[in-house]
Design a protein around this nucleic acid. Sequence first.
DNA 1: ATGGTAGCAAGGCTA
Length: 257
Amino acid sequence: MKIASFNANSVRARMPVILRWLDINRPDVLCIQETKVVDAEFPSGEFESVGYNSVFRGEKSYNGVAVLSLHDIKKVSYGFDGAGLDEGSRLIAVKIGKLDIVNTYVPQGTSPDSPKFKYKLEWFGRLRDFFSGKYKKSGLLIWTGDFNVAPDPMDVHNPKALFGHVGFHPDEHRALAAVRDWGFVDIFRKHKPGPGQYSFWDYRVKDSVARGLGWRVDHIWGTKAAAEKSTDSWIDGDPRLWEKPSDHTPVVAEFEI
DNA sequence: ATGGTAGCAAGGCTA
């Protein structure tokens, strides 16, 4: 089973990139964030025509999450409450085969002095409660998506300069670690322990990709049982270099399931 | 990288 996560920064603007990447890689599951589209306009027909089922929850202009799969997508729920009345467009949970999969677009936080930053920290707390209330630590659970946090100094290109910035702030590290300590393993890091591996390069930084000015904020984590089933994980930097790219690129993990 | 680019949607917000 090959599972991938991609912050598309608009699913409609990114259709050529997504379809090209699906054609090359044929993942069993693709989790998408920042779809930026209401459900009525989600391009499910285009995905279906290339073999992918899809479930999704979005809103106008902002946020939005989706899961595409070659297989049946079961036990679909939206947001922390399951119905999507609260945070429906940032969290979608599914079951595909033996794997429970939770796809999140964590609030970005804007800046540490913003109310949105506090909201981001609280969001991680609600997410931990969501996991502890709905899943077993011993189960086969994957948490993936844009976490909007680089967990470790090696996950940013300049940890000294960026320390304390949104995305690499000690309060975020504590909040993320509290979710991790419920029972998650960083599956990418299990397979690729070295530095310099990024999933996001800011559009606003000139030649950010060529100059290596990236961040690793997109993740595939799993319970111990899921991590033990993983056989490899990598970041595919190619789509960030294609025409009309997202500012993120896909992260992938394979499982012997 | 305190400036810059991209997306949505039609001006300003979000990232």
